[in-house]
Every structure is written in structure tokens, then in C-alpha cells.
């Protein structure tokens, strides 16, 4: 199967992909702790952008509340670990299933009552927001005071409980990012993937061709939600602290989709390219304004302003995102950038 998908990638594309992967695999040998954390942030954006892209880029359903699924994954796995000592990998299964179930519920609600487009997106925001308020009051996960995972000796790496040094998390995030890319590639060349694209392009025409649009849209939400929840699990065990106001915030939902939008919605490489563009620039921005803060300037949210500017530039100059343009620039062109 893998061979089949790679056959569609032009030779030069294969070379670039292999070089990028090799560089990322070797990176921890050469970079310092700070750069490693930036790269982890890149994977975070790439992975979550990819998960969001399944729903929007493939099936055409806009969600602005993916922080909900992220938070469900993070809190479920953390609670299972702290209270019952359950491995995060089982927590991931539980959190993923829980998020998929909630996603199916929200999707069913929206699609059954024909709440589409922007109104559906508002529905997703609403659910994320009131889950945030709910978790604020759930004392067994710390409520609004925050939920903390015990940190036990960062010198030893335990993959089973995900307790260890940043390098371990680096490779776990990398594996997930590569894994979700392969999964999305497989989906796009599957029957399910074609049905999603058809629904995205024209729901009524898709239905006339025998596609049960309700069912396939629900699938998309469930898969997207479950994958996002898995990202939430990794986040929880990497950061070790969870605050409802940060985990379920709309900012997080927006951050998740920025990479995909800037890279190219509906493309496979878009979320990855977007993450590599946004994160380093955002970090540079933070570093640049740091001295100004010392002078008493109030510059909170400068990163968000900058991200906003990036989106505006993309919308004006490259409506389909950076990836289709980059694809042509790299000499990989044969039509549409996938």
C-alpha cells in the first residue's frame, strides 16, 4: 500500500520528503533544548492541523471548537493516570473514543437539523465554551485551579507512562505527525476519502450519487475529534499542567486551524508546511519583542496579531495556501498540490 501512495509522489518530492524526515530524526543530536521545544511546537501545530483538516479540508465541515476534543483527550487521560494509574496509551483510547462520541453527538445535532457552514461552526464554539465552564467546576480534575501531573525524574524515559525528557516527547510527536500524514494519504485515496471530497464540493450532488452524506459527515467529525484528542493526550503528558481556561480556549481552536489554512486547506502537506512557517516566525516575534517588554511596553497578544496578519496575507495573495505555491516552486508540479 505504502508503495502505491509513494508512486504518486514525484521523484523529487520523495527526495525532499526523505531529506526532511532524516533531518528531523537527527535534529535532537544537534539542537539545544529551546529549539527542540520549538520543533515540538511545530509538530503540535502540524498534527492538530492535519486532524482538523480531515473535517474541513476533506469533508468540508467547518469546526471552530476543536479545543473541545483536544481538552477531552487531555483531561480524560490525565484523570485516568493521576487517579487510577492508567497508562496514557489506554487513556488515549478512552479519550479518543470519548471525543469521537461527543463529536458524533454535536455532528448529529448540527447535520440532523441542517445547521450548516458558519452556524455549525458557532455550534462547535458553543460546545467548547460550555465544556470549559463545566471543567472549571469539576473538582476531581482540579477545577479552575488547574490539574497537575506528577513529574517523576526527567532523567529516565518511560514510554509506557510518557514520563521523561523532552527528547522522548520530540520523537513521540514526530511519530504521530508522520503517522497522521500517512493515515490522511490513505484516506484520500480510499472510497471514504472520495465520498468526503464529493460532500465538500457539492453535498446535493453527492447525495444524488448515492452517498449517505449524514453518515459520512459524522465519520469525518468522529475521526477528526479522536485524532485531536490523541494530540491532547500528548500535550497533557508533555506539559504536565492543564487549566480549563487555556485548554478549552477559543484561541487554541483557532491556533489549530491556522497552520492548515496558511499551508493549504484540503492538502496533505498544507498543515505541515503551515506549522513550519507559523511557529518559528511566532517564536522569533516573541523573542524580538522581549526586550521591549523590559521597557514597559504592553505587547501581550502580539503573536496573535502576527498570526492574524499572516492569514490576511494568505487570503490576499495565496488563497489556496502556501503549499500549492511551494509545490510549483519546488518543481513538483503536475497540477494540483496534494
Amino acid at each position: 500500500m505504502l508503495k502505491l501512495w509513494l508512486a504518486e509522489v514525484p521523484p523529487r518530492g520523495k527526495l525532499y520528503l526523505a531529506l526532511l524526515l532524516a533531518a528531523l530524526l537527527a535534529a535532537p543530536l544537534f539542537v539545544d533544548g529551546y529549539l527542540l521545544s520549538v520543533l515540538i511546537l511545530v509538530f503540535y501545530f502540524a498534527y492538530l492541523g492535519q486532524a482538523w483538516n480531515i473535517m474541513m479540508g476533506f469533508a468540508g465541515q467547518l469546526s471552530l471548537g476543536h479545543a473541545l476534543y483536544f481538552g477531552i483527550g487531555a483531561y480524560t487521560s490525565a484523570a485516568l493516570y493521576v487517579h487510577l494509574g492508567v497508562s496514557p496509551w489506554f487513556g488515549m483510547i478512552a479519550g479518543g473514543a470519548f471525543a469521537a462520541a461527543i463529536g458524533a453527538f454535536i455532528g448529529a445535532l448540527g447535520f440532523r437539523f441542517k445547521i450548516g457552514g458558519v452556524y455549525f461552526a458557532i455550534l462547535t464554539i458553543a460546545f467548547a465554551e460550555f465544556t470549559r465552564i463545566l471543567v472549571d467546576h469539576l473538582l476531581f480534575v482540579g477545577g479552575s485551579g488547574g490539574f497537575f501531573l506528577p513529574i517523576s525524574g526527567r532523567s529516565s524515559n518511560d514510554l509506557w507512562t510518557l514520563r521523561g525528557a523532552p527528547v522522548m516527547f520530540y520523537y513521540v510527536w514526530l511519530a504521530f505527525t508522520v503517522g497522521v500524514l500517512i493515515l490522511c494519504r490513505a484516506l484520500l485515496s480510499s472510497r471514504l476519502g472520495y465520498f468526503w471530497l464529493a460532500i465538500r464540493e457539492d453535498q446535493e450532488a453527492a447525495q444524488a450519487l448515492g452517498i449517505d452524506t449524514f453518515r459520512y459527515k459524522i465519520f469525518a467529525v468522529m475521526l477528526s475529534a479522536a485524532l485531536t484528542a490523541c494530540g491532547g493526550v500528548l500535550y497533557a503528558f508533555y506539559n504536565n499542567n492543564l487549566f480549563p481556561s487555556a485548554i478549552f480556549s477559543i484561541n487554541r481552536s483557532i491556533d489549530m486551524l491556522l497552520g492548515a489554512i496558511i499551508g493549504g486547506v484540503g492538502t496533505l502537506m498544507g498543515p505541515i508546511v503551515g506549522a513550519f512557517i507559523l511557529t518559528p516566525l511566532g517564536e522569533t516575534m516573541t523573542a524580538l519583542v522581549e526586550p521591549l517588554k523590559g521597557l514597559g511596553a504592553k505587547l501581550d497578544g502580539i503573536k496573535q496579531v502576527f498570526y492574524g496578519l499572516c492569514v490576511v496575507l494568505i487570503v490576499v495573495f495565496q488563497r489556496r495556501g502556501v503549499w500549492p505555491w511551494l509545490w510549483r516552486r519546488l518543481g513538483l508540479d503536475r497540477g494540483e498540490g496534494r
Binding site: L197, D202, E204, A205, G266
Partner: peptide
């Protein structure tokens, strides 16, 4: 007409055939 605009001609028909 309601083509799947962003998909290729072949993929448009493919969606029908997948039924």
C-alpha cells in the same frame, strides 16, 4: 449542473462509480 469543481473529471465520475 453541479460538478465537483475542484476534482478532476475522472474523479467526478469515479465518485459515481464508487457507488
Amino acid at each position: 449542473v453541479r460538478p465537483f469543481g475542484e476534482l478532476s473529471v475522472l474523479d467526478n465520475v469515479l465518485v459515481g462509480c464508487l457507488h
